[in-house]
Design a protein around this nucleic acid. Structure first.
Ligand code: MN
Ligand code: MN
Ligand code: MN
Ligand code: MN
Lengths: 149, 149
DNA sequence: CCGAATTTGTAGCCTCGACTACATTTTGGT
DNA sequence: ACCAAAATGTAGTCGAGGCTACAAATTCGG
């Protein structure tokens, strides 16, 4: 029966492959979301307090300190952070660069949401999840929209 | 046994706790994202082909059939779907209702992205991830924006 | 109607991200 | 200086969500 499902399908229905690809993109974006949030948070702590302790990261992120330490270990594995036992966490140049990109993107997303009428606190909350799924093309559009309205 | 949230000190919630709360929201949204996508996909397949087979779901979602079957088992556990061996998958009333909500939300997000200038294909791809992190307050704002511009 | 192809199901393995419990190290108060 | 508290690290467990390999059921072509 699966003969001509393409012809019979709705015109606006995506092809199988295209849809699978989009779902895959969303999944892979999710796999880096945690790292992005950690790097951004650590960068903020370093800037505001001069140091980023695992306990602080855990409290700000809302997880146990053991969880934070394991995620920090993953950051180190991925070359984004460094740390020595009982000293704070620091970012590598790659980590700093990522933090900067993530911070700018976060702000852009919040600004866009506010610009289209989302209440500020909702915008801030939603952006925390949305930011990880916004493509560069969308960010460009957001910038243009914010500049030109 | 959901742990109770202490949302008492409303007026000026500490930045630290507020941030932790936002991160927690994003995490919990992510935990339901997969179920939402499956339910929406199954609903589409049921509407367009009259049936939703595990193999079709797997191919459209871009995962192995074993993975799809396991996720469908989770849908059944959560009361969103039903199925009998070697028959297709169907949605419970709860599942249908969720699919409808998710489908409308998906469209709204795409429309909003396009309205602020995001290219259509980027909008469609980004929406697949973004949709799961858009609050009702934001959706209301999106509707108003689309209606009133 | 029957054998082969397809579909479906099961089992076992992996990584990630969460937790608790406990061990160790550092820090701070007296 | 010392002991207690806090911070940090480690170990073990869990469920979700992937995978591959294999087994069983169903559907189809001849
Ligand atoms: Mn985030
Ligand atoms: Mn962020
Ligand atoms: Mn989606
Ligand atoms: Mn969707």
């Amino acid at each position: 029966m699966a003969k001509q499902e393409r012809a019979a399908a709705r015109p606006d229905m995506p092809t199988e492959a295209a849809q699978a690809h989009r779902f895959g993109k969303a999944r892979s974006a999710q796999s880096t979301a945690l790292l992005e949030d950690y790097v951004e948070l650590i960068s903020d702590l370093l800037a505001s307090a001069g140091e980023a302790r695992p306990t602080d990261v855990a409290r700000r992120f809302g997880v146990s300190h053991a969880t934070a330490i394991k995620t920090i270990a993953r950051l180190k594995r991925e070359g984004l952070a460094t740390s020595k036992p009982y000293r704070g966490v620091f970012l590598t140049p790659d980590g700093e660069a990522l933090a900067e990109r993530v911070r700018n993107r976060h702000r852009l997303v919040v600004d866009l949401l506010v610009a289209v009428g989302v209440p500020a606190d909702s915008a801030e909350a939603d952006a925390e999840g949305i930011e990880h799924h916004v493509s560069d093309a969308a960010l460009d559009a957001f910038r243009d929209f914010l500049a030109g309205r």
